[in-house]
Nucleic acid binder design. Sequence first.
DNA 1: ACATGTGAAGCGCTTCACAGCG
DNA 2: CGCTGTGAAGCGCTTCACATGT
Lengths: 208, 208
Amino acid sequence: MVRRPVPRVTVQRLPVYLRCLENLPAGQQRVSSDELAEMAGVLGAKIRKDLSYLGTHGTRGVGYEVEHLKHEIRIELGLTRDWAVVIVGIGNLGRALASYGGFGERRFQVVGLFDIDPVKVGTQIDGLAVESMEGLARAVAARKASIGIIATPAHAAQGVADALAAAGVRSILNFAPTVVKPPEGVDVRRVDLATELQVLTFYLAQSG
Amino acid sequence: MVRRPVPRVTVQRLPVYLRCLENLPAGQQRVSSDELAEMAGVLGAKIRKDLSYLGTHGTRGVGYEVEHLKHEIRIELGLTRDWAVVIVGIGNLGRALASYGGFGERRFQVVGLFDIDPVKVGTQIDGLAVESMEGLARAVAARKASIGIIATPAHAAQGVADALAAAGVRSILNFAPTVVKPPEGVDVRRVDLATELQVLTFYLAQSG
DNA sequence: ACATGTGAAGCGCTTCACAGCG
DNA sequence: CGCTGTGAAGCGCTTCACATGT
């Protein structure tokens, strides 16, 4: 009812709920918390508590209006407008991210690809040319990019993060296998393959 | 001192600590909790508490022996043996993962690449041939793979997870943008680009 | 003197359990 | 009745603060 701050963990689950809602059969108009919970792999009470932070109103005895709920979550996540994204580091991973189809659907637009390697500069990926690092600051400003993706080797990541921040990027997704110290006023999230694998092996090693 | 169970969050941080230790100057023999904390972006007390779960012994007034600590963390994470990994879904992302350099250093060996597309089957990536899904079960068993990576489209992920589980894989890293219901006895971790971006936009949208 | 190891307090999230309402 | 919305209890993690050991 009253609008309390949304807990971080809830923010992390909202995209999952949204995806589950989008996967519902086209005709389905209502969904209960238990039904959504089953799809998302959580408990019904967690769904209800999470949604309560949005000030959402389901209907008691009935459930949630699917379209209305999707809309509310999209508003909350800032998905009712477009976000311009630049990718720095066009190696294997950077290329894969550049051609990742899931961007457009969700209102993320890749507006720039950057690499330090002169051989790569000028290469086209899905109709977008790789640019040199010199053009980064101008491009971020001109194309109003607020999100930067780092897909460089570990040793280059901090420098790139600082350059992105200086250029005006306010959120960074770091795929480089290293800890990046967040520049002032910039939100950095880490996605780390090696870390995830090592967590898996911990539990593998435990059980035998 | 007494060996209590290691909290999940601690397990997730151990790979980060390990990487920081590996990045220390070659000659450095000792490290304090505050020094390591600075590198990892956490508080010193958290390092000490995390390490205390491993039954580690630093030296009061001095710090931790770098080599000894690295060894202890590697043992804890099961990184003193090799782990065989198969990758299913050889699209852009699957290819990038297949050529990811960080595997070998950390004792992960990619022993199989699988895709449902006959056009891709037979293709070589870094000296490894893409195989058809029919060979999955036999390959997992013969090559003793205990980790599977899913890099398929969302709609195929659950089926692949079940197939991997049936073949004997005990841990799965899911890159497909969907929630996978963990098969009995299998540990599934999700790495999801779209989710991470949406978390970023939440905080972007909040601040203006 | 200095840095670790750890009880204890504090905090945030999860889960319960049920009141509230259609 | 059925399902939501939510106080309250429970739980696990973080942080503090200092006793402990070198």
